[in-house]
Structures are given as structure tokens and as C-alpha cells.
Computed example of a mutant assay.
Amino acid sequence: MIDADRLQFQSHQYSGQHGGTRLIVTGAVHGNEICGTHAIVRVMRELDAGQLSLRRGSVTFVPVTNPLAYAQGERAGERNLNRNLFPNTHPQDFEDRVANWLCPLLARHEVLLDLHSFNAASEPFVMVGPRNNDGPLEPFQHEAQERALARRLGVRRFVDGWLRTYGDGVQRRLAGSGELQTVLRYGIGTTEYMRSTGGYALTLECGQHSDPQAPEVAYRAILNTLAFLGLIDAPAPEPVAPEQMEALSMVAVYDKQDAGDAFSRNWSSFDPVRQGEEIGRRVDGTPVLAEFDGRILFPDSGAGANSEWYYLTRANLSF
């Protein structure tokens, strides 16, 4: 049994001699997603050995963002850290205490690279934020910089639309309820919080949890980010060519209505679906059919009743 009260938080900062961007790189926001941890430790060793040299700006590394979840080898310690990420004057759980340390740390930086992995075997991808807007959900003004960096991380697949689609699902579940804004806050994670402080941020999903290539994807992304932002003396990475890109927008989220609802096959993220194709069945046998051609994202066979079951994406032709 791990004594959460004895755990501590660690970050490691390197600063160049000249002004530049303030970057933060995080790993193990979810404790069983350790590819980012391995990659961060590798880059830190190279900096410590003089194989890499930070010339401008600064970079802060957080190899293990959630030490309780990491020590347990599980996604969460007491709850999902990457939801409802805000400082809390009356912390109720371990992740609240992480947030009270992490949020001010994020706010002192300009750019966040958050390194994750996923359950089912699939291709790495990066999640980007919204278009520039002044709206109430996720106002943002760094679309060009964020998407330019995304194209240089070394992956070819890009997904946007998370908070908007999540919010649509919340509104459907809580129609007529006074809890909407409270629950919408639950959709705020590291990147959304970073954008709320005036910075920009990317979530890089580096591959399947146990894929030996996932730490390599994370390592390459860190080096490419350092080079692209000018923090190290290295050639600027070339952007992925438009003809090689696959850009998708999250369009709709579908819920389990009952814990007994089940998929009709073992879906993986980015599996293609055709309009009318059966995705699953409700507990009473009613088929759940795809409403349009697209790709499935984040299918969760273990989801509980009245929670997200899967998302559908459409091609984004204007990335």
C-alpha cells in the first residue's frame, strides 16, 4: 500500500544563457503511460553529459507528473488528473494536490508538450487545440504557432475538437440541469489549462503503452520541439508534408446507456467506420450504428453507464 502523503513532486529546469521560449515537457500524467518518462530521462541525461546544450530560453521537465498513479502503475491515483485540472483551495484528493503544484508551474511557461500513450495498438497522433476564437468555451489566439509545432513532432496524424465535442456530450447528458459548467470543467486537462493561461500546448499520444517504439516517438518529439523553438543549436525539423498528413476532427461522442452495452467487435482508435455500420449493441439488443463515414476514437469497452463509450471523427480538410 502506497502512502500518498509521503510522495513528492519533482521538476527539473535547464536554462540557456540567452532569452527564448519557456517550454515545459510532462510525462506520466497517467501513471501507466511511461514512454514520456523514459524519453524525458534520456534527454536530461544528454543535457547533463553535455551531449545536448540548451542555448536559449528554458525547458522544464516533469518526468512523473502524477507520482501516486505512477507508483501504482495505474492510469489514476485517486482520480483522473487530466480532467478538472484547476487549483483547489480545499483539495479533496491526491490529484487536487498535484493540480495545486502543477497549475502554477504550467502558468510560468509559454509552451507545453504533454507525452501520453494509449491502450490498443494504433499509430501515434497529436491532439491540437481550437482555431483562434474569442468564444466562451476555449478562447485561443495561438493557432498558427501550435499547429506549426504539431507538424514538426514527427507524426502524421492530427486530431482536434476535444473540448467542443466533450462539451456537446455534457450538454446532452445534463439537459436542463444546473450542473453544466461544473461538469464542463471536468474536460479541462493539462493542455486546456495551459491555453487558459495564454500559452499553447500539444498532447502527443506516442503509441500503445507497451510499444518499444513509443519512447522513441516521445524522444524524437522532444528534440524536434527544442530545435523548432530554437532552444538548442540544431537544424529546424521539416514539417510533415501536406500529402502525408491525416487531419481529423472529433465530431460526436456516444455514451453507454447501460453497463451492459457492448461493442460488436474489438475496436481500436482510428478504425474506419461506414455510415450504417454496426458499432455495438445496447443491453436490450438494439444495434448502435455509425451515423456517418469516419473513424472511431477512444473506444472504451469498460466504460460505465452514462459515460463516454466512443467518439467519431471526420476528415478535416482545412488543417
Rank of each mutant, 00 (worst) to 15 (best):
P104V: 09
D93P: 00
G73T: 06
N66F: 04
R75L: 09
V98Y: 01
A99L: 11
R97G: 08
N100W: 11
N80D: 14
Q92K: 11
P87H: 09
V98H: 00
E146Y: 02
E138F: 06
R75W: 08
L102T: 02
G129A: 05
L115P: 08
F86M: 14
N82G: 11
A99M: 08
A76C: 14
D96T: 07
A71P: 02
L105N: 08
T89E: 13
F86Y: 15
R108T: 15
C103S: 11
R108K: 15
P130V: 03
P139V: 00
L68Y: 09
S122P: 04
N88D: 14
A99Q: 10
E123V: 10
A69P: 04
N88Y: 10
V128Q: 06
V111R: 08
R79V: 07
R108N: 15
C103I: 06
V111A: 09
L105C: 10
H90M: 01
A71I: 01
P136H: 07
P87D: 08
G73Y: 05
Q92P: 00
D134S: 06
R131C: 07
A76R: 10
Q145A: 15
C103A: 15
E110Y: 13
P130K: 03
R83C: 12
F86I: 15
M127I: 14
A76H: 12
D114T: 07
A107T: 11
L85Q: 03
T89K: 08
R131I: 09
M127H: 00
E143Q: 12
E123F: 04
P136G: 04
F86E: 15
D93W: 00
N82L: 11
R79A: 09
R75V: 06
R75P: 01
G135M: 05
F140Q: 05
Q92M: 06
D134W: 00
Q72V: 04
P91C: 11
V98L: 03
H142Q: 14
T89N: 08
E123M: 10
R83H: 13
E95I: 05
H142S: 10
Q141C: 09
Q145P: 00
P104E: 11
L149Y: 05
E146S: 06
Q92I: 03
G77L: 13
E74T: 15
D93S: 02
E78Q: 15
L112C: 11
F94E: 02
W101T: 11
S117V: 00
G135K: 07
P130W: 01
R131E: 13
R151Y: 01
C103L: 10
Q72A: 14
A69W: 02
N88H: 15
L112Q: 10
H109D: 11
V126F: 02
L115Q: 12
E138I: 04
A144N: 09
R147F: 09
A121T: 12
N100C: 13
F125Y: 15
L68C: 12
A150K: 01
R108S: 14
E138K: 10
V98F: 03
A148P: 00
G77W: 06
F140W: 07
G77Y: 10
P139C: 00
D93H: 00
H109W: 12
S117Q: 01
N88Q: 13
L85A: 07
D93Q: 01
E123S: 13
L81S: 07
